[in-house]
Simulated assay, not measured.
Amino acid sequence: MAKKIGFLLGMGTGYVLGARAGRERYEQIASKARGLWRDPRVQAKAEQAQSLAKEKAGQAGSTAKEKAGVAGQAVKEKAGQATHSAKDKMSRSDSSSDSATTSSTTAGSTSGTGAPASTTIPPRPPSPPTSTGSPTTNDPATPSGKLPPHTGGPGGTLS
């Protein structure tokens, strides 16, 4: 029903804008449109649509607020887990470096039988640096460590 009314209003608007019937015909059509809009049945439907829109907007707002709260709580939990995991890794890293130091200092001692008291485990090599996605250079001429901007243009050569 609403599509029909919208179509008819569109047709009427198109006719009014495109017609060459003059001011008299325009006034006639405009008068009918005002009368239709003032019809109590049309006003009742318009008020009904407006109240339904307000109701749905309120529901959507409360649902969005609820979902945002749930998402925020999930983010807090994940952040807490990540922090805990990082602390665990750091404490394991600290304790493993302490034991490596202890092992290396006791490697020269003997247990009384002439055999070494413990076996030295060599430390792990440092892990390579992670890339941030932007190329870097160790050139002291670029204080930020980033490569200079490309100046060759399309198909040109770099300096």
Rank of each mutant, 00 (worst) to 15 (best):
T137A: 03
S131L: 05
G156L: 04
A46Y: 11
L17E: 15
L17C: 11
G58W: 01
G58E: 11
Q81F: 09
S91R: 15
T13Y: 04
T106S: 09
G155T: 03
N138Q: 08
A115R: 13
L52F: 08
A33T: 01
G145H: 05
G10C: 04
S111I: 10
D39M: 02
P126C: 02
A71N: 07
A74E: 06
A60Y: 02
S96Q: 13
G22W: 03
Q50V: 04
Q28V: 04
V42P: 00
K78D: 12
Q73D: 06
T105V: 11
T119S: 14
K4A: 13
A44I: 02
A49E: 14
T136D: 03
D39Y: 03
E24A: 14
A49L: 14
G61K: 07
K3Q: 15
P135M: 06
I5S: 09
F7T: 07
P143G: 05
S96F: 14
S134C: 04
Y26S: 04
T130N: 09
P128F: 01
R124M: 10
G155E: 01
T130G: 09
G155F: 00
K78Y: 07
F7K: 11
A21M: 08
G22V: 01
G72V: 01
S134R: 12
S118P: 05
A68V: 05
R34V: 02
L9T: 06
P148K: 11
K67D: 05
S97K: 15
A33V: 08
K78R: 15
V75Y: 14
A115W: 07
P135F: 03
S131E: 11
S93I: 10
L36I: 10
R92C: 12
K32Y: 03
T130H: 07
L147V: 12
G108N: 08
A64H: 04
